[in-house]
Design a protein around this nucleic acid. Structure first.
Length: 460
RNA sequence: GUCCCCUUCGUCUAGAGGCCUAGGACACAUCCCUUUCACGGAUGCGACACGAGUUCGAAUCUCGUAGGGGACGCCA
């Protein structure tokens, strides 16, 4: 009988959810779903000084927005500290861990000396055999010469490290609180986590953590260390690359499904397919298809994926997502008439926007109150005399529809010996205040005869 | 400094020794469509980091070199 697959996402609540963290969460979620397993959320708040409630909320919000639902309640690691402490003492009793009385100052000095002599950095085990009975607790890392430890990583393959490289890390701080290194192992073990999928900045930690599994005689989980996401310049993603927190992407108007698709394809591939729905992703996801090289954030690709999902989205769903953005630009809630116009216009509008922000800007003229602000480019093409003639033609239409408007204005253009564009553009400027819009005949129909006339009259 | 990992178009990737004159997507360029902007369609630009080896044959295997990334905390 095989164990049920259990993964976990374990962010530390010291800030917003990083986009790389979002992808890690996504991979854990997909892997669990693929195997009909469980995906747990554990908040790693053992660093009391840096953990905040705000950060916890921000992380939860972002995960919810991404559509990554976890099983059960989030687990707060610090609440399990008694159990962690108990394990640390058990290791001391087993003779596999010891008390250390070195001060941070001592250690700093030690490291400086190691650096100065070009020696490998690491604790020199000076307290190991002193038999102290208080202080911080350190694990006794195996010291066999010429031996190595092997980790069969699902992404990185076989990775070997010489045991001599593992130092006696701290399990319990001198104030009695457990460290991350101890807590993760105890929690992952107690929670029956079968697969640890995390950033490859933790690859080295896997070896150190395995020494704890070994001492406790526990079976280590499977590891999958995924490469990090870099900025467009190939450097570690940081604030100077622009958006790093997931909530920033929400505010820039990206759709959750687009985000999932884009992040999935960053470092994971399935043949030539670029557009992969979440359902497909669950079906196809496999750790062996994760690449081993770090990948770079590409905003234009994200935008194009987003455009795809916006086009695919029903007008119904789209308007719900769009309204907050409209409201933000407008500075107030649009009225019912405006919303209805906008909704009708969405079908044509969504073809020409890549984000909800762009879509909101492009559709703003539907919800704006008269008189409409006219931008500079539009002002240049406003031929008031010609618009006057256009107005009288439109005024004469008994049926105010896309096709009747177009036909009448085409006739007019032939009559005047003008290209249709010469007529359509001033009308566009007058009705939208811009020089870019969907078919202006269609726009006029949606605005309705009354509003169209009124907007033309506003120009006089 | 020490250890670990990585390396196909600008970017994300396909590629498991002959199917590769290396495929797709995004970006870019040109053209078509067209009332503007988009969408759509067509074409183009463009990569196996380098050097040795193994082999009849290497993007694919081996070894070096170079470059990039990560880690070395009483942070996570």
């Amino acid at each position: 009988m095989t164990k049920i697959v259990k993964t976990r996402f374990a962010p530390s609540p010291t800030g917003y959810l990083h986009i790389g963290g979002g992808r890690t969460a996504l991979f854990n979620w997909l892997f669990a779903k693929h195997h009909q397993g469980e995906f747990l959320l554990r908040i790693e708040d053992t660093d009391r000084a840096r953990s905040t409630k705000e950060a916890v909320d921000a992380i939860l919000d972002s995960l919810k927005w991404m559509g990554l639902d976890w099983d059960g309640e989030p687990i707060f690691q610090f609440s399990r500290r008694d159990r962690h402490i108990e394990v640390a003492h058990e290791m001391v009793e087993k003779g596999q861990a010891y008390f250390c009385t070195c001060t941070p100052d001592d250690l700093k000095k030690m490291r400086e000396e190691q650096k100065a002599h070009g020696k490998p950095l690491g604790y020199d085990r000076r307290c190991r055999d002193k038999g102290h009975t208080s202080g911080a607790i350190r694990i006794k890392a195996p010291t066999l010469q010429n031996e190595e430890m092997l980790i069969q990583d699902k992404v990185q393959g076989d990775v070997h490290v010489a045991l001599s490289k593992l130092d006696d890390m701290i399990l319990l701080r001198s104030d009695g609180t457990p460290t991350y290194m101890l807590s993760v192992v105890v929690d992952d073990h107690d929670m029956d986590i079968t697969h640890i999928i995390r950033g490859d900045d933790h690859l080295n930690n896997a070896f150190r953590q395995n020494t704890i599994y070994n001492v406790m005689d526990w079976t280590p989980p499977e590891y999958a260390h995924i490469p990090l996401i870099h900025g467009a310049d190939g450097k570690k993603l940081s604030k100077r690359h622009g958006a790093v927190g997931l909530e920033a992407y929400r505010d820039m108007g990206y759709l959750p499904e687009a985000m999932r698709n884009y992040l999935l394809r960053l470092g994971w591939g399935h043949g030539d397919t670029d557009i992969i729905s979440t359902e497909e992703a669950i079906r196809l996801f496999d750790l062996k298809d994760i690449g081993r090289a770090p990948s770079r954030m590409d905003f234009s690709k994200l935008a194009s994926v987003n455009a795809h999902y916006m086009r695919q989205c029903s007008e119904d769903q789209l308007i719900t997502m769009l309204l907050p953005f409209i409201e933000k630009i407008l500075g107030e809630k649009p009225d019912e008439i405006g919303i209805r116009r906008l909704e009708k216009g969405l079908h044509d509008l969504k073809e020409r926007a890549q984000t909800l922000v762009e879509l909101a800007q492009a559709g703003l003229f539907y919800v704006r109150h008269r008189p409409l602000p006219i931008n500079e480019a539009a002002n240049k093409v406003l031929d008031r005399q010609l618009l006057g003639e256009i107005r009288s033609i439109l005024a004469g239409l008994s049926e105010f529809r896309n096709d009747t408007i177009e036909t009448s204005l085409k006739e007019f253009s032939i009559q005047k010996g003008l290209k249709l564009g010469k007529i359509a553009m001033p009308l566009r400027a007058a009705l939208t205040g811009m020089t870019k819009s969907p078919s202006i005949f269609h726009v006029a129909e949606i605005l309705g005869k009354e509003e169209t006339m009124a907007r033309l009259d506003d120009l006089e």
